[in-house]
Amino acid sequence: MNTSFKTVEESAVTISVLMLPSHTNFSGKIHGGYILSLLDQIAFACASKHSGAYCVTASVDTVDFLNPIEVGELVTLKASINFAGNSSMIIGIRVEAENIQTGKVKHCNSSYFTMVAKDDSGKNVSVPGIIIRNDKELQRFHKSLKRIEHKKERNAHAFAVRFKTDTEDLYRNYKVKLDMQ
């Protein structure tokens, strides 16, 4: 078992990328899929830096697109480890876009990735714990614990749900028509 610890700061990663026309979607804004790719890359970098091992994405727990990103803006992604388990880590990522002409910065995205450390044969490996040094890091740790708890509840609930098809009252407020065969 790995009994070492690292500070959150030791594993933090920041990258900045200029948004180009080739990154746009059909409406001329930066494509969400491109941002997701950057999120996955920085989550990998942060998790690998913390664990010292190759890491894979186990889940993307939250991706909230808050504001559109424009061509020509400088996008900065900041990743930090919020939680370390046995082999898994929760990486929190904040995305900001800066208009480099005006200097105006907007918060565009917050995301949480669960990453798992692997050895060369693909088996899970133990990761170092985290050393929490300030209130912000402690708050992120506690929020991660809540996310883990909610995820377990959702997963348990998903198996317990029984769907009703015998009453239309249940579906009245939704855009759905049952045509079960």
Rank of each mutant, 00 (worst) to 15 (best):
I132H: 02
S37N: 09
I131Y: 02
Q41C: 09
T24A: 00
V176I: 11
A158C: 12
S27K: 08
L38R: 13
H23K: 10
Q139P: 05
K123Q: 12
R147Q: 06
M1A: 15
K146A: 10
C108K: 07
V161D: 10
Q101T: 12
G32K: 00
T7K: 00
L178H: 13
R162W: 03
G103C: 00
V105A: 05
S51L: 04
M89W: 07
E168D: 14
G33T: 01
G32W: 01
H50G: 00
V63T: 02
S48L: 01
G33M: 03
H50N: 00
I81N: 15
L178K: 07
D64R: 05
F163C: 15
Y171E: 08
K118S: 11
F113H: 07
Q101R: 10
S80V: 10
D169N: 11
H50T: 04
H31S: 05
K146Y: 11
H157V: 09
I131H: 08
K78F: 13
I42L: 10
H107F: 04
Q139W: 09
G92K: 00
G32P: 01
G72A: 06
E73G: 05
R147W: 03
K104R: 12
I42M: 05
F83T: 03
S88V: 05
N173P: 10
E70R: 07
V127D: 03
Q181G: 14
K151F: 04
N25G: 08
A12D: 12
D40R: 07
L170K: 06
S11E: 09
I81S: 12
F141I: 09
H150V: 10
E149Y: 15
N86K: 15
K177P: 06
I90T: 12
L39K: 04
K152Y: 08
A43T: 02
D61Y: 01
K106A: 12
S110M: 11
K175W: 13
N124L: 10
T3Q: 14
T102G: 00
V95A: 13
D64G: 08
M19P: 03
H107N: 12
R140W: 05
L66T: 06
A12T: 12
P68T: 03
L138C: 11
V71R: 01
I90H: 15
S16W: 03
C55K: 06
S110F: 05
A97I: 02
N82E: 00
K104E: 14
S37T: 11
G28Q: 02
D120Q: 15
F159I: 14
S4N: 14
Y171W: 02
K136D: 15
